[in-house]
């Protein structure tokens, strides 16, 4: 299965290890990460549960983040995440590539389930509760809008992905602030109240920011999957 590594060379000690002679390996060409999502769906239709596992590894984090923001609690989001992927398994044959990327399909299932759950609970979703137990309905999230932007302190630092952070850096500060609060689960009117801006201003900033990110994220290597891809 594995090829032998060449004999070590008598090179001087180096902190930075240099390139060895390539070792060819056929498996490198068939890694599961090369399998496009639609092929995974086809494999699921054919009854291959491993394909569901790969699909989960690829998309679960984003779907889970979405669910958590809508529901406002992790426990509920975990339950629904399970439901999303079970439905994906059961309804795999209904996926139509022409209607959008697999991520969009999964997000759509998640969104429908989450809105139903919100309605079922008969109340507005709770705002995400931070690990410290502080309710985000307070002004705690204003902390993510730092008046002195810097590499580690502006709104980008709320986003885990470096590519996403780089894309956010290209946005005007006012748009980043709106997005940071939106990503924290605040509605546009709540954002307007927190920022002391008119609702219309917040909506237009939001709209421009979403459009710009949609355009720029692929260039930063973010695994965004847009409907028209």
């Amino acid at each position: 299965m594995a090829s032998a590594v060449p004999e070590p060379r008598n090179s001087p000690p180096a902190a930075r290890i240099r390139v060895l002679e390539p070792v060819s390996r056929a498996a490198a060409d068939v890694s599961a990460d090369l399998v496009p999502d639609p092929e995974l769906i086809a494999a699921m239709v054919a009854g291959e549960p491993e394909a569901l596992g790969v699909l989960y590894d690829r998309h679960a984090n984003v779907v889970f983040a979405l669910l958590t923001r809508i529901l406002g609690d992790r426990e509920g989001a975990e339950d629904l995440l399970q439901e999303v992927f079970l439905r994906a398994w059961q309804q795999a044959r209904t996926y139509d590539e022409a209607r959008g990327a697999v991520r969009c399909w999964l997000n759509g299932i998640a969104h429908n389930l989450a809105l139903n759950e919100v309605r079922r609970r008969g109340r507005r979703p709770r705002i995400w509760r931070r690990a410290g137990g502080e309710e985000d309905g307070s002004d705690a999230y204003i902390a993510c809008i730092d008046p002195a932007p810097g590499p580690d302190s502006h709104a980008c630092s709320r986003v885990r992905d470096v590519g996403m952070a780089q894309a956010l850096e290209q946005l005007p500060r006012a748009q980043r602030d709106v997005l940071a609060l939106y990503a924290a689960g605040f509605s546009q009117s709540e954002i307007a109240a927190k920022l002391g801006e008119p609702l219309g201003t917040v909506k237009s900033r939001m709209r421009r920011a979403l459009c710009q990110l949609r355009e720029s994220l692929p260039a930063y290597g973010v695994d965004a999957e847009w409907p028209d891809d």
Binding site: A65, L66, T68, R69, R74, G108, R160, L217
Partner: peptide, 13 residues
């Protein structure tokens, strides 16, 4: 789809 995807990517969860 765009808004759903971006919220999932942006959210700090």
């Amino acid at each position: 789809d765009n808004a759903l995807n971006l919220l999932g990517l942006l959210a700090d969860v």
